[in-house]
Computed example of a mutant assay.
Amino acid sequence: MTKGDGPVSSVSWQSIRDTMMTRIRAHDYAPGELIPNEVDLATEFGCARATVNRALRDLATSGFLDRRRKAGTRVREAPRRKATLTIPLTRAEVEASGARYEYRLLERGVEAPPPAVRGKLKLAGDERLLHVKSLHLADDVPHMFEDRWIVLDTVPEIEAVDLAKTSPNVWLVRHAPYTHGTMEFLAETAGARAKHLICAADDPVLTMLRVTWLDASPITFARQTFSPSHRMRLEL
């Protein structure tokens, strides 16, 4: 134990976090207010400063504190929670709803991507991309139409996969782990996708745009459009 770290204590960082959270909820520390510094809190709790630091970092990660170097730690005016999303298996989603799942490959081919796709994947222009269109159904009713581009320079193995039997969604989740990515959600009209979703072209639909990367290498850009009756539920 170095000088200034505080006395040895059995107090855990989790118990300090819980106490601080109780004070925040009770407005003992009001929104926007500076909380005591780590040295003072370590003295109060009778523990090492590092234990206090761990507790405050957890509260900051959870969105309740705003920590700034040399400016101290404040209670956030509005707590900012982070949502963690996993890439779902469409089959699992459909079957979890109690419906029977079916997948249909509509088109596949190696093509030059349009400018919008090149921009999403930050491509130089000479990469080979596999373009796949597919339909996912629930109890024989269209559930989701997928328009997907896959960068073969990053995952060349998928070119040999029979995508009439295995969907790109399943294969990529199982064989192409990603390091990071983005998701965007759009409300738009079905347009030309209406023929696959069996709805009117001007019907409103939910579309999800997803891009995944393996470090600096783009893996795939998927545009998934759901049927007009689709509902999305997230846990907060």
Results as ranks from 00 to 15, higher is better:
Arg100Glu: 15
Arg91Pro: 05
Asp58Thr: 12
Ala200Gly: 07
Gly63Thr: 10
Leu56His: 05
Ser10Ala: 14
Leu163Asp: 05
Thr22Ala: 08
Ala96His: 06
Ile87Arg: 05
Ile150Gln: 07
Ala164Pro: 13
Tyr103Gln: 09
Ala192Asn: 08
Tyr101Phe: 04
Ala96Cys: 07
Glu44Ala: 07
Val132Glu: 06
Trp149His: 04
Ala78Cys: 05
Leu129Phe: 04
Glu38Ile: 15
Leu152His: 13
Thr166Leu: 06
Thr182Tyr: 03
Gln224Arg: 06
Val151Asp: 10
Met1Gly: 00
Glu157Pro: 02
His136Val: 11
Arg118Met: 14
Asp202Val: 05
Met1His: 07
Cys199Ile: 01
Leu130Tyr: 13
Gly4Tyr: 03
Gly72Trp: 12
Phe45Gly: 01
Trp171Val: 10
Arg108Lys: 14
Thr189Gln: 09
Thr212Lys: 03
Lys82Tyr: 00
Asn53His: 14
Tyr29Asp: 05
Ser9Ile: 06
Ser167Met: 07
Ser134Phe: 12
Ile24Val: 14
Pro88Gly: 02
Thr220Ala: 12
Arg57Phe: 13
Ala83Lys: 06
Asn169Arg: 10
Ala160Arg: 07
Pro79Trp: 08
Pro228Gly: 07
Ala30Val: 11
Arg148Gln: 15
Lys70Met: 07
Thr61Gly: 01
Gly32Val: 10
Thr179Lys: 10
Glu188Cys: 03
Glu111Ala: 13
Thr2Arg: 09
Cys47Ile: 06
Arg233Asn: 08
Asp215Val: 02
His136Asn: 08
Phe221Ser: 03
Val39Asn: 06
Arg81Thr: 14
Asp162Lys: 13
Phe64Arg: 09
Met1Ala: 04
Ile198His: 13
Thr220Trp: 10
Tyr101Thr: 10
Ile158Asp: 14
Phe185Thr: 13
Asn169Trp: 14
Val205Leu: 02
Ala160Met: 11
Asp140Ala: 00
Gly6Gln: 01
His196Gly: 02
Lys82Asn: 08
Glu235Asn: 00
Leu172Pro: 15
Ala216Asn: 09
Val39Trp: 03
Lys165Trp: 09
Met144Glu: 06
